[in-house]
Design a binder for these strands. Structure first.
Lengths: 192, 192
DNA sequence: AAAATTTGCTAACGAACGTTAGGTTGTTTA
DNA sequence: TAAACAACCTAACGTTCGTTAGCAAATTTT
């Protein structure tokens, strides 16, 4: 299943790996060019600026995360089931592309305005989705939690370091990781 | 309780705030100087290099984390109690200085060798401490967890984003946050 | 009062940075 | 076959970077 990438996509992919490993600011266009085997100036035949790459990665991943939890959301289900589905969907996106996920999670702060503000608004909307499930679960007596925002941030935090250690060839596959995390975190919410 | 700081400590503190907010690479010595109200060159009367600041912050925090879990460790206690104590100790260090914690957690990768390798060794040793508690808990039947490394990383991940939202004047104080997180995470480990 | 230390300055260095201009080559389209 | 395009080059631009040299003033120590 060999996917053929356009030059622009190659550049984006290579840049993503560098942004993850060294950070956006510590990655120079000459580093990127070197990795691609061309001159730095040549990159500008395909992209407009260094930040354009960052923008494309950040907003593409934001879309992927939204689509994933939207598709996974099962209406008319209990809060526990809905939260489990959202967690699994989130983890699947994270593990499908750990490099782009790392950039999405850590490098967005180097976006300039108005992209920076737009990104934060999206991220907040994403968290609201989780917050609503938690609130529903509290009302239904499924969850016992001191603060819903606190709970959401803790859950997402626990999930969002997967990219630092996940390897597709590791002993746990994405599905197992997702369900293990989901049951562990759900148990944590049901404290008596 | 006004603490008088030496100029060197002032520089380190101001730099730490900038490193947290913009990242090490995106913070220039001229930014730092500007914040201090002096010229960039003047900073070099007090420090040897930009990286020296990063080194001091990273290794000072590493020490603080080690001391905290060492002091909190209660021998002859159950694994649950030991883990709870370690989590609370960890959270207290995190909340006592969120800026230095953020640098410790995210900016260490900009250390040059051999400091980079030394730092990673320390961090690994720290994780081993938690891993041993988890293993003890599994053997004693207190915890049911698929993989001890997995559990430790999940716990630390859940804790290590506190610095992004914690405010001393917020509605939860450090103690409450620590115990809430500890009970939530401990419950997660006791899944049936 | 002399010596030492602290704290800062101006000026400048060489290197690295993101990016642009203008040109060449090979491939695809009309 | 001509025109258009894709992909890359060399050369260079203006800027910013971390840092050094050398000096001046104030403060502290001896």
């Amino acid at each position: 299943m060999e996917v053929i990438l356009s030059r622009k996509e190659q550049i984006e992919q290579t840049a993503t790996a560098l942004f993850k490993n060294r950070g956006f600011s510590a990655t120079s266009m000459r580093d990127l060019a070197n990795q691609l085997g061309i001159e730095a100036a040549s990159i500008y035949s395909h992209i407009k600026s260094k930040e354009e790459i960052l923008q494309r990665v950040c907003f593409r991943m934001a879309n992927e995360f939204f689509e994933a939890i939207d598709q996974a959301d099962v209406r008319n289900a209990s809060a526990s089931e809905r939260l489990q589905a959202a967690i699994i969907a989130h983890v699947k996106v994270l593990t499908k592309n750990t490099e782009a996920s790392a950039v999405f999670l850590h490098e967005w702060r180097h976006l300039s305005e108005p992209h920076h503000a737009e990104f934060l608004a999206l991220r907040n909307r994403y968290e609201v989705h989780f917050r609503e499930i938690i609130r529903e679960g509290i009302k239904a007596g499924e969850f016992k939690v001191p603060d819903e925002k606190f709970a959401v941030l803790t859950i997402l935090s626990a999930l969002n370091w997967i990219h630092t250690w996940y390897k597709p060839e590791g002993k746990m596959n994405a599905e197992e990781i997702a369900t293990n995390l989901a049951t562990m975190l759900l148990n944590g919410l049901k404290q008596t």
